[in-house]
Structures are given as structure tokens and as C-alpha cells.
Write a protein that binds this DNA or RNA. Sequence first.
DNA 1: GCACAGGTAGATT
DNA 2: AATCTACCTGTG
Length: 317
Amino acid sequence: MGKAVRALSRPAPPPEAAWQALAARWQPSADVLAETLDGGQSFRWYRTGTAGALSGWRGQWADQRVDLRLAPGGVQWRPAGARTADAGAALRRYFALDVDWEARLDALPWRSDRHLARCLAAFPGLRILRQPFGETLLGFLCSATKQIVQIKQMCALLAARHGRPAVPGPAADAGHASLAYRLPTWAELADVPEAELRACLLGFRARYIHATARHLAARPGWLEETEALPYAAAKARLLELPGVGEKVADCVLLFGAGRLEAFPVDTWILKALARRYGLAGWKPAQVAHFGRTHFGSQAGLAQQFLFAWERRHGGED
DNA sequence: GCACAGGTAGATT
DNA sequence: AATCTACCTGTG
């Protein structure tokens, strides 16, 4: 009601902010940028415009909504909508720009592992994101037996229906209206009836999310404390949450807490290690143990490259 | 129509 | 302790 009138009478939007360099040391190809943003770590990035030489993306997390593009000198960003005061710091953290990625890659056993060396060479610049802990937990509680496209759809509905508006800005959002909203916080989710969660296409995952929201609501500070714990203790605590098993816990710690020792074992990694490392028939727990011991303290980083390779090259040798 | 998809939890053996 | 199975639902 009156929507068209409001739209007509709305003042012209402010001019778009200028593009600025994200990091001189990170110059991924369009392909690797896509794998980093939309390869299963995060479910809140969408391509803008047409895919071409200049690959554009829009994403949203916490208080931030930003555009990214690939320019000749590397990745550039600008706020999508109103500028937030801490955007620079937020980007540094989200993309882990202060991390010495070369040193971490060098710590992997690529010298003695031909397949790993091949994966590292195939996706130069592939990074592990450092997303907000709670949002990562929500995303991966949606992930059970779902493909990325569908997980993104669930997150989009959760944001649009139960999240607060993100920073003011373009409402249409390049066709991705859900980016105008944040993902709901766990406090907000605690007040959402399970039936409304099911209406967001969550299926049986709705029960997990509802129960986890109630669990967290009864324990103020629990999630923040968990994020601050050492890896093993943090994982043990996450496993207490309904719907969180080994795989989801490791994904949350790897993609939402910067714990590179986490080695999530999903069906792709199971396939990858069966095929490339002769571990056919091994159980997930056994593969996880192999991963931790073989790849070491940065096992999660190795995992991301193996995962990307396996999805790309499927059945090939 | 039916198998399958980036798992988890509870029952059964 | 290891091994089934149900759980929702969109997609092919």
C-alpha cells in the first residue's frame, strides 16, 4: 500500500562509494575468488552484474554489506549502502588479511605430497574466511545433506524473514534482496517458533536450529566463551549443541573462528582421501585422524584445497 | 516416481 | 562400539 508513491517520493540515493584496494598481497583469479566466497565456506555472497573479466560480488555479514570486484591490481571493495565506521577493520578480519598465508601454506606437507602440491597450484590464493562465529554456526546447521545453492536459499529466507535490516542502502540489492537483511542472531532465533523456521525450507534442520537457539538463550555468553577456548575444548562444547556433530563443529571452528587445525570431513573429503590417498572404506573418524596427522597444524587449509579440487575434477585422475 | 544431496541423533545389533 | 535409519524438501 502506497509503495509506489514512497518509491517515487524517495530522494535520489547518494552516489556510490569509491572502490578501494582490499589487500595488495591478495590477488586471486576470478575463479579462486569465486571458490573462496561461494565454495561452501560462506552462504551470503552473490555475483553482481554479469560474470566476466571483472568478477563482481556482493556479500553481507554482521553489520557489513560490501561489494567486491576484481581489478587488474587485485581485489577492490566498497560499502554497498551506507558506510560503517569500522568497515576497514571488519574486512581485515573477515578476509584474515593479517594472517601470513604464505607461511601457513609452506607449513603444509606439499613437498612430499604430490596431490596436495597439485591442489595448491590449481587454486593459488584460495583463502579461509574468518566469519562471525554465530552466523557460521547458523549456516552450517542448515547444511546437512544440502547443496550450496539450497543452503544459501535457506539463509536468504532466514535473513529476509527474521533478520534485522542491514545498513541502509540499495533495497533491490542487485536482485539479492536478502542481503538487505542480516542473518538473525541466536537471541532473535530463540523467539521464532519452529514452524516458522520450517517455512524457511529448513526441513528437519528447523528442529536443530530451534533447539540450539533455546539452548543458547538459556546460557548467556556461552557462545562467546566457546569461541575463545582452545580448539579441542571449543569443539567439545559445540558438540553439546543439538544438530552439531563432528563435521559441523569443525566447519564452524575453521570458517568462523580461524582454527586452521580443524579438519571437517564431509562426503567430498571422504571421496578425495579415498581416491587420492588410498583410504577407500575408511570411516569419517579415521579419515579425520589421518587428516590431522598427515596435514598437521594447518590441516583445515589443506582440506579447503582438496575440497575445491575434488569438486572441480570429480571423477578424473 | 524415486534417488540423492557438503549430517545428526537415536535405535538396533 | 560399530552399523543402520529416519529426518524435510527441492532437484534431476
